[in-house]
């Protein structure tokens, strides 16, 4: 068997067509990759910006989470209790550096950071004259929550 008969017999035309298809398909895929390469390069060059954006998205998501009634908020309540006592002794309005010094003397650890946190949650508020006041209402609300949680826990634990 020779010539066209042999080609037909061994499916030469099919194989040639398949070969052409494979080559052209590969070329199309390659062209697509090359045409989109500038996007990958743009992402790579601006990776810092995208990391930041992703970080902001994650931190935004975290900040939308409700405040957990976990050890962190319990720490804040404990700090509120301690500092409200100190403020009661010092009187109002009080000096912020003096409050920090007194807290350190009484053995409260990380007094600076704790005061910063109490300012952030508006438990310590400035009087706009350089001195500060204790936000009794906010403190009472915070401690009330704590008492409610405590009562709830006791109720659940009761036989």
């Amino acid at each position: 068997m020779k010539g066209l008969d042999a080609i037909l017999h061994y499916e030469g035309f099919t194989m040639a067509a398949l070969g052409i298809t494979v080559v052209f398909a590969s070329l199309v895929v390659l062209a697509l990759i090359v045409s989109q390469l500038y996007k990958v390069l743009f992402l790579w060059e601006n990776r810092k910006l995208y990391y930041d954006k992703a970080g902001k998205l994650i931190s935004g998501f975290k900040s939308r989470q409700p405040t957990p009634a976990g050890p962190e908020s319990e720490g804040l309540r404990e700090s509120a209790r301690q500092f409200s006592l100190l403020v009661r002794i010092m009187g109002e309005p009080f000096s912020l550096p003096k409050l920090i010094r007194t807290a350190e003397i009484t053995g409260i650890s990380h007094a600076h950071c704790t005061v910063s946190r109490l300012i952030a949650v508006n438990l310590i508020v400035p009087d706009q004259k350089g001195f500060f006041r204790w936000n009794h209402k906010a403190c009472e609300r915070l401690l009330q929550k704590s008492r409610e949680q405590c009562a709830k826990d006791q109720y659940l634990m009761a036989p």
Binding site: S95, L96, P97, K98, S116, K129, G130, F131, F132
Partner: peptide, 12 residues
């Protein structure tokens, strides 16, 4: 940060 003076006044 806290800016504070000798008289005890401060601003954060």
């Amino acid at each position: 940060f806290m800016i504070h003076y000798k008289d005890g006044s401060a601003v954060s």
